[in-house]
Write a protein that binds this DNA or RNA. Structure first.
Lengths: 226, 226
DNA sequence: GGGCCGGTGTCAGGGTCCTGTCAGGACCCG
DNA sequence: CGGGTCCTGACAGGACCCTGACACCGGCCC
């Protein structure tokens, strides 16, 4: 889950934020002053920063610029000052959002979601791994020990059906209709052929399958692995 | 300069915003209702959207979701409602910021700058490199070993779609609709032609493609390279 | 123990589909 | 009219898919 760095010098506020954010599934790291914030951000790079401007040691804007020298992590500023000039200064220094106290926790978390969404949408790709094989379902790509493995359309389609149901037993009938469409329920020889092909390309020892297992008389089962 | 789409049903507010934004060097496009907003966004894709939630024809959240189906342009919501639930709904629908009326123009423009900064910094790395080829997406220019390479509009369009999804397999159907628009799903001969053209102009050995790979029966894949 | 049988893994061959390539003509624009 | 771009059709080569045949294995009956 996402990691949030909360920077505030008032322990009650830090505590309240931490409890609320953890309850929503975030990992929370805290700092009580500007120096600690910069240190924590370097030690445990967060996915988003919640920063109170009224810190004892550094000016809030300096904390922002300090972070911005090396990271583009989204920064949400909390402040008791609703003065327009303060907002402009913080935003122009590199902050991404500005919320004035008192604030609603729902709004704050909604804004955090919005900031995180923008950063994570691009890179998240659904992958399934087993052994030294990585199956990237979004990119339609398979690698083994880093090397790309070329699959034919039918091989890929069969692999996709299998890895989308890890641990489940899939009958031959179901595999045949999922991969070849209805009407091919009798082409079992075909299914055997492509199972063998997948094992040859992806199993460590194709003659003793570990991930694409045969359940005699029933069907096949994909067993996810470490 | 950046283009801003301002959506509001009250002409005085639209006028005030337009004047202020133009004075700050933005190009301003306006719409008075939700349907017009979606239309304008498609006709003249903006770099950021300023959206009033109180529109006569569509619910503001519907406008956001409508935009989000096909674009990730930053959206700043204006609203007279300071209710926390409204903010959460808009932000979770895909908005990036939420400002309640009355607002200060300085603050608004600062927030716009913050949103644009995030997008342009991401796009300043808008050059894709592979081999001795550099594709500058922002400038619409391709160089190979420093020499400029001339591409026809269709070639460029196809190249752009490919390099914007490095490593991803793109089906012929998707490439055809992305480059030629819907209705050209059968013009596969055409696609082959332009793929060959790109390879001839950009591949070190066009007969053995390295960056624009064919996945027989499935589509094509652009492989970024050192 | 020997033979039979259903189910599975393996191999090779031919048919089919897909892809790369070329030439030729339509179209737009200066 | 000329240059450039785009589209269409045809063909050769290759990749892929399906089919059939055979070997192997375990269980069962005789």
């Amino acid at each position: 889950m996402s990691r949030v760095l909360v920077v505030d010098d008032e322990p009650p506020i830090v505590r309240a934020l931490a409890i609320n954010l953890r309850a929503r599934g975030y990992e929370v790291v805290t700092a009580g002053d500007g120096a600690g914030a910069l240190q924590q951000a370097a030690a445990q790079p967060p996915d988003v920063v919640v920063l109170d401007l009224g810190l004892p040691d550094l000016d809030g804007v300096d904390v922002i610029t300090g972070l911005r020298t090396w990271t583009s992590v989204p920064i949400l500023v909390l402040s008791g000052r609703s003065d327009s000039a303060d907002k402009v200064d913080a935003l122009d220094a590199g902050a991404d959002d500005y919320v004035t106290k008192p604030f609603g926790m729902d709004e704050l978390t909604a804004r955090l979601r919005a900031m995180l969404r923008r950063n994570t949408t691009a890179e998240s790709s659904a992958t399934v791994e087993f052994g030294d094989v990585v199956v990237d379902l979004a990119a339609t790509r398979v690698t083994r020990a880093g090397q790309e493995v070329r699959l034919t359309p039918t091989e890929w389609h069969l692999l996709e059906v299998l890895v989308r149901h890890p641990g489940r037993l899939l009958s031959q009938r179901q595999l045949l209709t999922d991969v070849w469409g209805p009407g091919y329920e009798t082409a079992q020889g075909n299914l055997r052929l492509y199972i063998a092909q997948l094992r040859r390309k992806l199993e460590p020892d194709p003659s003793r399958p570990r991930y694409f297992r045969t359940e005699p008389g029933m069907g096949y089962r994909f067993e996810a692995g470490p």
